[in-house]
């Protein structure tokens, strides 16, 4: 399955984000094994060097770890994963708030609006 990428962000970052979201959604559990670099490259249709970079970056952020000769795993450090969840949350909310402010909404209007939308049964 080839995946599509947007044009304005490095591909490695886009893949990192996808993996982080999968972790936060619980699709990738603590301690789960990640596909090998080549498998992942095939799944995503990108250069193995790019996947290597993704894994290295995830390791740098302590989200994944490489076990010599065994491959890469999502960390078993559940505290770090909770932290990741919070990080993604504040990042998303932050960019939403910045957008809303730019459009001229006050904090009260934003909070009210969000509450209203969330209580809407379709949300």
């Amino acid at each position: 399955m080839r995946q599509t990428f947007n044009n304005t962000q490095p591909i490695y970052l886009q893949i990192m984000r996808r993996l982080c979201r999968q972790v936060v959604r619980g699709e990738l559990k603590a301690g789960a094994k990640l596909p090998s670099v080549r498998e992942m490259a095939l799944q995503t249709g990108v250069n193995p060097n790019t996947i290597q970079r993704v894994y290295t970056e995830l390791e740098r952020l302590s989200i994944a770890e490489t076990r010599r000769g065994l491959g890469s795993y999502i960390t078993e450090d559940t505290f770090r994963l909770k932290q990741l969840r919070e990080e993604l949350k504040s990042e998303q909310i932050g960019s939403f708030i910045a957008d809303m402010r730019e459009t001229g909404f006050s904090p009260e209007e934003i909070v009210d609006g969000v509450r209203k939308e969330l209580s809407n049964p379709k949300a």
Binding site: T8, P10, I11, Y12, T50, R53
Partner: peptide
């Protein structure tokens, strides 16, 4: 990746 990062 640098082209994407640097110039979008």
């Amino acid at each position: 990746d640098h082209i994407r990062e640097q110039y979008g």
